[in-house]
């Protein structure tokens, strides 16, 4: 059979993808090797622009925040998703359907809107969080959550987790439902308590889902932008700066084409390596 029909089938998707994704990636890579003046490329300068990474404290801080974001995501929404899925799996199909819909709901909300909603909850003057702490007699724990360097990043991660844990529940549930029920029955015969079945059967058999969700979370942690931009824009100071906001500011606010391209290339290199690792480990066919 000739290849022609296949190429014709591929052509429209390939043109669109090539023109608006592949081409800009190649351009950004090329831009990063030039010196720039007023948005016009001047001379080929080799790796000179890259040399600036070493002394750019904001870049290293941003990279650190991206890394912290990954760790926090693994520690909270992923773990919560695993626990919730294991509990839910033993309930009636109606409960499963209803609860997973509830948990998943925040993911349908645009991150911009999520940022606005949670910005309120964290508002130091009238926000729900400080209000609730007051009600519980814990008023001394109240704070200006997003406005303090110590709490801003963690507070935002709670918002990220809010939109992500339902996805973890759904993925884990799908995997649990394919575990052979006779394993649990055998454990029941031995009189094993719930948490031991969870630890010895459920968790080990969900290794692949955990791997998938962990890599997914790591990639998303490098990609996210909206949530930070509508809440803190990387502040206070540089406390919530991440790689994407650093690119945005370097390009749109400073107008530094060469260095913004360097940061873009670094960002691309990280997400592409993570994705290559994911495909390798998960053996996608």
């Amino acid at each position: 059979m000739s290849s022609r029909p296949a190429y014709l089938f591929l052509l429209p998707a390939l043109l669109l993808y090539g023109a608006f994704v592949v081409l800009p990636i190649l351009q950004v890579t090329a831009y990063s090797f030039f010196s720039w003046d007023n948005g016009i490329a001047q001379d080929f300068v080799g790796l000179d622009n890259y040399a600036r990474l070493g002394s750019d404290g904001v870049f290293w801080a941003a990279l650190g925040h991206n890394a912290i974001w990954v760790v926090l995501t693994l520690a909270f929404p992923l773990l919560a998703g695993l626990l919730l899925a294991a509990i839910l799996a033993e309930r009636s199909p109606r409960t499963i359907q209803m609860m997973s819909a509830i948990y998943f709901l925040p993911r349908t909300i645009p991150l911009v809107v999520a940022g606005i909603i949670w910005g309120w909850i964290y508002n130091p003057l009238f926000g729900l969080l400080n209000y609730s702490l007051d009600m519980l007699g814990l008023g001394n724990l109240a704070g200006a959550w997003l406005a303090e360097e110590g709490t801003a990043l963690v507070s935002l991660n709670v918002v990220g987790a809010w939109t992500f844990f339902g996805f973890c529940v759904v993925i884990y549930l799908g995997a649990i439902q394919s575990i052979d029920p006779s394993l649990y029955e055998a454990a029941d015969v031995d009189g094993a308590p719930w948490w031991r079945k969870f630890r010895d059967i459920t968790v080990p058999l969900l290794k692949n889902s955990t791997l998938f969700l962990g890599l997914y979370a790591a990639i998303e942690a490098m990609r996210f932008f909206d949530l930070i931009w509508v809440t803190t824009q990387g502040g206070p100071g540089y406390a919530t700066e991440v790689l994407t906001t650093h690119v945005y500011k370097t390009f749109f606010l400073v107008g530094d084409y060469g260095y913004a391209s360097v940061l873009s290339v670094v960002l691309l290199a990280i997400v592409l390596s993570l994705s290559a690792l994911a495909f390798r480990l998960l053996r996608v066919k």
């Binding site: 690119v247 391209s261 873009s264």
Partner: peptide, 27 residues
Amino acid sequence: MQFRGREALFALFLAGLVVPAPSVIVA
């Protein structure tokens, strides 16, 4: 469908799966 360059073209699409908009916005 069978065609020449299938694996390479598919890999090209797969690579794009994770490209964040901020990383291409400069160009």
